[in-house]
């Protein structure tokens, strides 16, 4: 079976985010990018499915800072091919990126046919849409998001998929293959790959580069301005060492009739 994983780099929010002088985008000086968390899960799920059913895993991603490390790491974890799309311009628009990725997947030989396309269900910069349904739309494939487990039944050309609902409830769906899945969490936490293996992958592995095809006209997103949120309210902070603050808190809560 052939599994395709679509990867994305998003800003690493461990660093303080600042607005660039233009007021419409992020300041990039100290900006670090990290693989979107649910994309890591999507890759893990793909690797687990490969272990179960055999086949290959290909990772596709649009070029971004620090992407190479993530791609070599994917190779070290067990991906068979990693493909980087160069020259793609999409700003903060997931829908634009989805169009570019879909077009690249269609035009690059060897990527299709895929049995399953897996990606993260949502990323922190999905301002204008989620990538899984958009990929499904562009590629004419069914899609389902918030997936937490996948059971492929290649003989029937379908997969049984579990998706999350509220209150801890999950729903089981049957989806025909090929399909696009937005993964919320893999069946096991993303595996650890030792630095030595990643470095070995850097030496012996190869990132294929394909240029982005001419972008189709994508719905445009117009950002008027970007700013740090000013919280509407803020908690009343209680000072002092834990004992003092605890006593103060008790007083406050008793005053509200809560104790």
């Amino acid at each position: 079976m052939h599994f395709l994983v679509v990867f994305r780099m998003v800003p690493d929010v461990v660093e303080e985010l600042e607005v660039a002088p233009g007021g419409k985008s992020l300041e990039t000086e100290y900006l670090r990018m990290i693989a979107s968390e649910s994309d890591d899960h999507a890759l893990e799920e793909a690797l687990l499915l490969k272990e179960r059913h055999g086949g290959s895993v290909t990772v596709v991603a649009a070029d971004a800072p620090e992407l190479d490390d993530a791609l070599f790491s994917a190779l070290a974890k067990g991906a068979d091919r990693v493909v980087k799309i160069t020259g793609a311009e999409f700003g903060l628009s997931t829908s634009r990126m989805a169009g570019i990725v879909a077009a690249t997947i269609r035009h690059t030989p060897g990527l299709l046919p895929a049995d399953l396309i897996l990606t993260g269900t949502q990323a922190i910069d999905d301002l204008d849409g989620l990538i899984a349904p958009l990929l499904g739309f562009h590629l004419g494939l069914p899609s389902l998001g918030i997936v937490t487990s996948v059971e492929c039944q290649p003989a029937c050309g379908a997969a049984v998929v579990t998706r999350e609902f509220p209150d801890g409830v999950r729903g089981q769906f049957e989806i025909p293959l090929p399909a696009v899945l937005g993964v919320q969490a893999a069946e096991k936490p993303p595996r650890y790959v030792p630095v030595a293996k990643v470095r070995a992958a850097m030496k012996s592995g190869r990132i294929e580069e394909v240029p982005a095809p001419e972008p189709a006209v994508a719905p445009s997103l117009e950002i008027v301005r970007m700013s740090k949120p000013v919280p509407l309210s803020h908690a009343e902070m209680l000072e002092g060492d834990p004992e003092m603050a605890a006593a103060e808190l008790c007083k406050m809560l008793a005053g509200r009739g809560l104790l």
Binding site: D12, V14, E15, Y192, V193, V195, K197
Partner: peptide, 28 residues
């Protein structure tokens, strides 16, 4: 080498790799 490490240790190792410290904090 087999990736059989506890989840929290994985996070700590990933933190060392990315940020150079065990607190998962920005190097700055």
């Amino acid at each position: 080498s087999q990736g059989q490490v506890e989840h929290r240790i994985q996070d700590v190792l990933a933190g060392y790799t990315r940020y150079g410290n065990s607190f998962g904090a920005s190097p700055r």
